[in-house]
Design a binder for these strands. Structure first.
Lengths: 149, 149
DNA sequence: CCGATAATCTATAAAGTCTATAGATTATCT
DNA sequence: AGATAATCTATAGACTTTATAGATTATCGG
């Protein structure tokens, strides 16, 4: 399961992407209220995203957070790996967070690892195909098809 | 990520499937030592699997656990749902463990949910295509291709 | 340069989950 | 009856999640 942290991070980035057509920073409180994310928790999340170069911030009046990268270039893989860690379901099947199982004699011959590697490949295909911009696109698409009814 | 509980459950079932050609029950200690799973933890896991009708048990001398279902009919989806819960990454995208997001106004219009539903479909495709028997098959296949080198 | 605003940093903590461990009890077989 | 092995109950340390409180620092308008 995705942690709330990851989910909130994605939602905040979507909110920022929608807002940043204006180019100006968005306040934590605004994001918090709009997306119903606990303010102080969101604070920590945004700080994290800033430290990793996805967001920038400005203090004082008219301050807030803004996107550094374009919504088209922020993929779900990046956010999830940053906030939750590995995409794979077991460490020995992970690309970026590989770890050896201490209960496994020879992983090159492990059937479970083989299946979990297949799963990781499938998951990565979906997550690396979707950026923040794609999420917004899907949203407008869903709204349109709903209104047509 | 998969919990250790799930991982141990799958490994134990694989061990039992390999053993149960003989049809006779396998002792907790044997599984524990063979698969390097902490004994008492394994105990709780096997009890769970028994309560859900996947395993049977027999007390006393020559006792132990045995498979009730055939290895071909025990799929990873079943085990993971039983020990870890949902396959989906967020509850609102789950088939068996659906829950509404309390921060979401209208989920039918949520872009993140849409992506996570795609991911769930992809994950389910892999996990429901693999049974305990399949894991064993993959293992022998891996061993064979290794020996041919 | 002052005062208001808003991000930043540090510390802490409640709740829940994961990963077990210990010990007593009950059923089975010889 | 006695040995074996599963079963049940209770508990607990470590870690993660999900925050909350409060002090500090930077920015801007006037």
């Amino acid at each position: 399961m995705l942690s709330k942290k990851s989910k909130y991070a994605i939602k905040a980035l979507v909110a920022l992407a929608k807002h940043s057509k204006h180019g100006e920073p968005m306040r934590i409180v605004e994001i918090s209220e709009q997306e119903k994310i606990p303010k102080k928790f969101l604070e920590a999340i945004l700080l994290d995203l800033r430290k990793h170069g996805i967001l920038g911030s400005k203090m004082g009046i008219n301050g807030g957070y803004y996107l550094v990268k374009k919504p088209e270039q922020i993929f779900l893989t990046e956010i999830i790996r940053l906030t939750d860690g590995p995409i794979a379901m077991i460490p020995c099947a992970s690309l970026n967070f590989y770890e050896k199982c201490d209960d496994c004699e020879d992983e090159t011959v492990c059937g479970l690892r083989k299946v979990m590697t297949e799963l990781r490949t499938a998951s990565l295909a979906v997550l690396s195909a979707n950026s923040i911009a794609d999420i917004i696109k899907k949203e407008t698409k869903l709204i349109n098809s709903k209104n047509r009814k």
